[in-house]
Design a protein around this nucleic acid. Sequence first.
DNA 1: TATCAGTCGATACACCGTATCACCCGTGGC
DNA 2: GCCACGGGTGATACGGTGTATCGACTGATA
Lengths: 226, 226
Amino acid sequence: MLVWERPEPPDRPVPAPLSRERIVHAAIRLADADGLDAVSLRKVAAALDVGPMRLYGYIATKEELLDLMVDAVYAEIRPTGDGWREVLRSLAEATRKAAHQHEWLADLLGGRPQLGPNTLASGESVAAGMGGVDLGTAVPAIAAVNAYVIGAVRREITERRAERASGMNREQWQNAFGPYLLRIFATGQFPALSTLVHDGPHLDADDTFRAGLDFLLDGIGARISR
Amino acid sequence: MLVWERPEPPDRPVPAPLSRERIVHAAIRLADADGLDAVSLRKVAAALDVGPMRLYGYIATKEELLDLMVDAVYAEIRPTGDGWREVLRSLAEATRKAAHQHEWLADLLGGRPQLGPNTLASGESVAAGMGGVDLGTAVPAIAAVNAYVIGAVRREITERRAERASGMNREQWQNAFGPYLLRIFATGQFPALSTLVHDGPHLDADDTFRAGLDFLLDGIGARISR
DNA sequence: TATCAGTCGATACACCGTATCACCCGTGGC
DNA sequence: GCCACGGGTGATACGGTGTATCGACTGATA
């Protein structure tokens, strides 16, 4: 058998070897582009030019893949700052920023126990930054900030999607849901809510997030200095 | 034709006519029993002794069914109390209680815009109870409490499921994940986190939820009385 | 060179949400 | 009283999902 009968095909370069990292990265790219629903094992495998079953040599289940995706994003979430307040604020802002870059994170945050290396490293940064605060306060404070961030980011991304789905900007959104809400409010069933929506401030997403976070940090601060 | 020729068949009573309410109720029962994954249009239809396509005469899509389920649960969430603090606390506790009775609520909360009648009625109760608080504070305060509740409930239910999945009680959970965490902590990569887990308080779910909620309400109170 | 072990992926299964459309039944018109 | 029609119903179908199974091929070893 002659050597040149099996030349290295130049237009089909030898693929990089499969790995957890390549799989997770491909899944993240799919999710970033088309949302979490676009992440199926078949599509991830296809993006890697591989049969679907091949992935099971690297991950046990789809849930594990989702967990790995979350942990991969946590690589970008490294709270820093001087003092507990800056650290907790940094944690919140970094998580929110990550969710802006990867909207699907909002669907996954808080939905599974996260014990991956990057998540733990993020936790380590927070724990280290709480130096001086007594543990009896630090533990519930961290838990509270985490809970707030999960919920706030979830609501924010949900609202963003709703706006995007029905037209583009907030004005069009009001045109879409406005009639329905106007009709509801016109019935007079919800007078206080109507007043609140009508006369209340129309904060943007940034201000809303920070206002809530400030409430929480103020409350924590009051406990610490007590 | 004689009257008794068509008696009411006693063992096959005429089925109640189909309705949104009956569909939603059946779906909630399925979700309560076996989780959200057990809610498929086919199973809901089967529970109602009906073909799957029949449901599309009452709901447009599965997402709409999920929205209706959430709104139905909001019928139980009617915050009451004297003064903004009691009202917000009542909102939080009632939502948490509902999630305890319907764990799937934790998966849905905050994941879709909720404009159903019961959700709006709940919002009305909150808005009405905030009387006296200036709107510039009330709006972000309500948003913050909602965000906190969504995240806190999500984390709590997630943890409860993890415990239930790996044995039964907290001790068994520690035996399941303990070795992994011990090995991680033994590497010394996460000293601060390790200290926090080791020497920190081990609050139960009730205390954790209330501690975070108190932080938030304290912070809101500081703003109101300023 | 022959055998074997192990990896890989094609195929299969059960299930999903939902589009389509033939059928059947009840009703109105003749 | 009979028939044609129209609309609601639900069987069937389609394209997708996660994953179990298992035959075939590959590479290494005796």
